[in-house]
């Protein structure tokens, strides 16, 4: 797949590296000349120095051939312009935008951006669940954060330790999908017991996440 990343600094570099290692071909458009030379030294990509919302720069980054455009500049307005121009001028099938202002999510969707990453909402939803975050090992938003995969380390003090799934009775819209015990991976059933030092992967909606985690940790 051909992907164009618009933005600057480290996010572009790491994103580009991941995509390249996944076998995709990547072009980068970045405003800052210093960032550009840094990126071009680190990853094998076509790097264009300039404004990503300028149709000419997008064309030079081969937007005509691109399968996706990812806009991760710090400004919402710039990201929207990049995605809209890519979509309407170059008919790029998939556009991804990063947003800061959570209010912009619906607007961007209405205006035809395929995927909107709402980083503010993700962070704030985590905080608002009032959880002891130290037990959450990893967190992965799926489908723009509509579903969240949470990796939780189970401790002896937790309410769920030594209980079966049936006994725990997790709330609606949640699923304990995998238990990792030592080196083995267990797909749990109703009679599977959770033990201390297990790592459990919980799939849930953001709304149910808090309740499920409280069930597990007993707080």
């Amino acid at each position: 797949m051909r992907v164009i990343i618009v933005g600057g600094e480290e996010l572009v570099y790491f994103l580009g590296r991941l995509l390249i290692s996944g076998g995709h071909s990547v072009s980068v458009i970045s405003k800052n000349p210093e960032d550009c030379s840094e990126i071009v030294r680190q990853i094998k990509a076509l790097v264009i120095c300039g404004d990503g919302a300028d149709p000419r720069r997008l064309e030079e980054a081969q937007a005509m051939r691109a399968d996706a455009v990812i806009a991760v500049t710090p400004r919402d307005a710039d990201n929207l312009a990049v995605c809209q121009i890519a979509k309407h001028r170059f008919e790029v099938p998939r556009t991804v935008a990063l947003i800061n202002d959570p209010d912009n999510e619906t607007l961007f969707k209405d205006l035809g951006v395929t995927l909107v990453f709402n980083q503010t909402r993700m962070i704030s939803s985590l905080i608002q669940q009032e959880l002891s975050i130290e037990d959450i090992v990893n967190l992965l938003p799926i489908k723009e954060g509509k579903v969240i995969a949470t990796e939780v380390r189970i401790r002896e003090t937790h309410a769920c330790a030594g209980k079966t799934l049936v006994e725990m009775a997790l709330p609606k819209d949640t699923l304990l999908s995998v238990i990792i015990r030592g080196d083995s991976v267990i797909i749990p059933r109703g009679d599977t017991k959770l033990l201390a030092d297990d790592t459990a992967v919980l799939i849930s909606t953001p709304q149910a996440q808090g309740a499920a985690l409280r069930k597990l940790t007993g707080e």
Binding site: D76, L80, L107, L111
Partner: peptide, 16 residues
């Protein structure tokens, strides 16, 4: 003086 801001605001005004 920012094209992208103008475009976003204009579209928000119209659609939202």
């Amino acid at each position: 003086d920012n094209d992208n801001v103008n475009l976003m605001v204009a579209q928000a005004a119209k659609h939202l």
